[in-house]
Amino acid sequence: MSLEEKKDPIYLDICHQLDAFCKRVEEKVDKDQQQLKARKKNTELEEKLAQEMKKNAELLRQLEEVSNRYSELDRLCAMFPGQVTISDNDQTRLDQAKLSYEVAKELTGVRFDYTAPPNICKGYVKSESRKLLQPFSIEVQPDASAALWRLAEAVAAPEWRLTDKENMPPN
C-alpha cells in the first residue's frame, strides 16, 4: 500500500472503525470472562452453602433428638422426689465385694478390660515375681472360668499346676 492510500480518509475511517470494533470485541470477551469467573465462584459458594445447610439441618435434627432425650431424663428424674441413697446393708455388701475383688486381684494378678464386648473376657494376668504380663481374650462360655484359672496358674509358675495331681508336693 502506498503512502497516499494510507492517507485516504475512507481508508483511515475504516481503520478507525475496525480498531473500535476490535476494541469492543475484546471488551466484550473480557466482560464475558469476568462474568464466567463470577458465575463459577457463585456456583462454588452455592455448593458450599448447600453443604453447610445440609450439615446445619443434620445438627438441628441431632440437637432435637438430644433435647428430647434430655426432656425424658428430666421427666424421669422428676419422678424421684429426693436423691437415691444406698442402704447401710447394701453399702456394707458393696464394701465387702470391693475388698474381695482387691484381694483376688492381688492374689491372682488378673486385671480385666471392662471395655471389651460383653461376650469376651479380656485383660491380662500379671506376675510380679516373674515380671510377666500375659494378655488374654476368652470367649464367655461355661468353661471360661476354668480357662482363666489355668492361665493364672501358668503365669504364676509354669511348673506349679493345681490340677496336676502327679506333680503336687506330698502332704
Rank of each mutant, 00 (worst) to 15 (best):
Q33R: 12
N68H: 08
E26T: 11
N56V: 01
Q134C: 15
A154N: 13
T85N: 06
K28C: 09
H16C: 06
N89R: 10
E139Y: 06
E44A: 05
S129P: 01
V84E: 05
E4H: 04
F21Y: 14
E44N: 05
L3M: 08
R61P: 10
E4L: 10
K23R: 15
L73V: 14
T163H: 14
M1V: 15
Q34Y: 10
R24C: 02
D74W: 02
R161P: 00
V110C: 09
K122M: 05
L99C: 07
N119G: 02
L59H: 07
G82L: 05
A152I: 03
V84I: 13
I10L: 06
L133R: 09
D74K: 10
R93H: 10
R69C: 09
K165D: 13
D113H: 08
N56G: 03
M79I: 02
D30G: 10
A144L: 07
L73D: 06
S129W: 10
M168T: 12
P135G: 02
A104I: 01
E153G: 07
Q62L: 13
I10W: 06
R93Y: 06
T108P: 00
S127V: 09
V103L: 15
N42F: 05
Q35V: 08
R93V: 01
E58V: 06
Q17W: 07
S2E: 08
Y124E: 13
K105W: 03
E26S: 14
T108E: 03
Q33W: 02
I138A: 01
L49F: 05
A116Q: 02
N42T: 03
Q134E: 10
E47V: 04
E65T: 08
V66Y: 11
K6H: 04
A116P: 08
N42V: 01
